[in-house]
Amino acid sequence: MAGIQEVYELVEKGKAKKVAAAVQEALDAGCDPTSILNEGMISAMDSVGTKFKNGELFVPEMLVAAKTMKNGVAVLKPYLAAGAAGAAGKVIIGTVAGDLHDIGKNLVAMMLESSGFEVIDLGVDVSKEKFVEAFEANPDTKLICCSALLTTTMPALKQTVELLNSSPFRSKIKVMVGGAPISAAFAEEIGADAYTADAASCAQKAKELAA
């Protein structure tokens, strides 16, 4: 439908100020709210993620697209069935203890949210115990994503994953790790379920793991 296509284009181009009106118009024209979300917004963010991964778009474009989607969802939310906006599942995310980097973590959080996940962002410098406490407060969480951007905080990442691996709820979650010094081999060595190199790949992998 034309209304959904317009929402898609606005999200893809990051027109944050125009999207609210476009979503409202689509609703007024009788478009299904869930279709506006899935085909208009989440699909657009998938496209943005792919272009980011391929080097066609950069962080600023991705940020304004995510912001646009957020503005659109704010209009759409009252019309959606409860929980539809986070239908893909709940994710806990944070940068590990001793590490204050947040750009990559924020991008991953935005891409996850834009892919239909409900994201609980614990921020930066997060102790391993806080990840566990966050799960205990949100036992329906499907994924825990931890990042480390420094060689000096790789041990903290390892300790966090070790604690998660020894927790009684381990079978209920998948653990993903990322960050500049992290590799797939390191992820495997410390017992994480997956490593991805960028935010778009993380969102794709998260969908596979949460399915």
């Binding site: 944050a16 962080v59 600023p60 940020l63 304004v64 912001k67 947040d102 750009i103 924020n106």
Partner: peptide, 11 residues
């Protein structure tokens, strides 16, 4: 702030 700044470069 990083996210703000990068967004401002467009908006």
């Amino acid at each position: 702030e990083m996210v703000n700044a990068l967004t401002y470069y467009i908006e």
